[in-house]
């Protein structure tokens, strides 16, 4: 049996009156590229913050790589935070050096190669970059690591089409070369639905569907259509 890379049992997290995760039950198999899909506010980011130990659930049990999340488990997790930025005074090279210093499994050589492929000028200051260029650097910080799990929270949001394509292309290359497990959350699956071989649909803090993407397609059609149907309410609001 393939061990699960992520397991959630009855996980609840509240913010005041608002429930971000509602008795979430989830098991994500290892070695897959899993899409965590759902509209904004469905609990994707809270789930990822729980997996990286930044947020502790009010109730329930979370396991990542077979352990309770904390700073130690982050040694084996490459994490792209949601809506993250980078330090404006750093140059691209300093950002990569930051990764080299603090992120276990980081390969500077690989990072420089990725920067070259994604057309990043290493001497450029982050403060002078477009959002898309900045996003590419942050993605490199995750993809240049040899770790068990890569967690990318909304890597395609708020960036230009060119950067989006560069990011999708480098993700495909990354998938081809690595055996790592990858979780990618997104609320916009256009152009990327072919990447996911396992799919989790979140709605109001619960997993309303999870399984092989191909099974989902065979049963319901394209992820995009399923997405539209499942979240019809949010769409009409």
């Amino acid at each position: 049996m393939i061990p699960n890379i992520v397991e959630c049992h009855q996980v609840t997290k509240r913010y005041g009156q608002k429930i971000a995760l509602d008795r979430l039950e989830l098991a994500i198999p290892a070695g897959r590229i899993t899409g965590i899909l759902g509209p904004n506010g469905c609990g994707k980011s809270t789930l990822f913050r729980t997996l990286t130990g930044m947020v502790r659930p009010d109730e329930g049990r979370v396991e990542v790589l077979g352990k309770t999340p904390g700073w130690r488990t982050n040694q084996s997790i490459a994490y792209l935070p949601d809506r993250a930025r980078w330090y404006p005074n750093h140059t691209a090279r300093q950002a990569l050096e930051w990764g080299n210093s603090f992120l276990p499994g980081f390969s500077m050589e690989r990072a420089i190669q990725l920067a070259d492929e994604m057309e990043i000028d290493l001497d450029m200051r982050v403060g002078g970059m477009s959002k898309g260029q900045e996003a590419r650097i942050m993605l490199i910080l995750c993809l240049a690591r040899d770790v068990d799990l890569v967690v990318l929270d909304e890597p395609f949001t708020g960036i230009d089409v060119m950067s989006r394509e560069a990011i999708v292309a480098s993700l495909i290359d990354f998938l081809e070369e690595s055996e790592q497990s990858i979780l990618i959350s997104t609320h916009d699956i256009q152009e990327v639905e072919g990447l996911f071989d396992y799919t989790v649909m979140l709605k109001e803090g619960r997993a309303i569907w999870s399984g092989n993407s191909e099974d989902l397609r065979a049963e319901y059609g394209s992820l995009r259509n399923v997405f539209r149907k499942l979240y019809a309410k949010e769409w009409n609001d």
Partner: peptide, 15 residues
């Protein structure tokens, strides 16, 4: 303020 706290907090070193 810089929205870098996600990076800072997930550095795998003791708090």
């Amino acid at each position: 303020g810089n929205e870098t706290y996600g990076w800072w907090l997930t550095i795998p070193e003791s708090r």
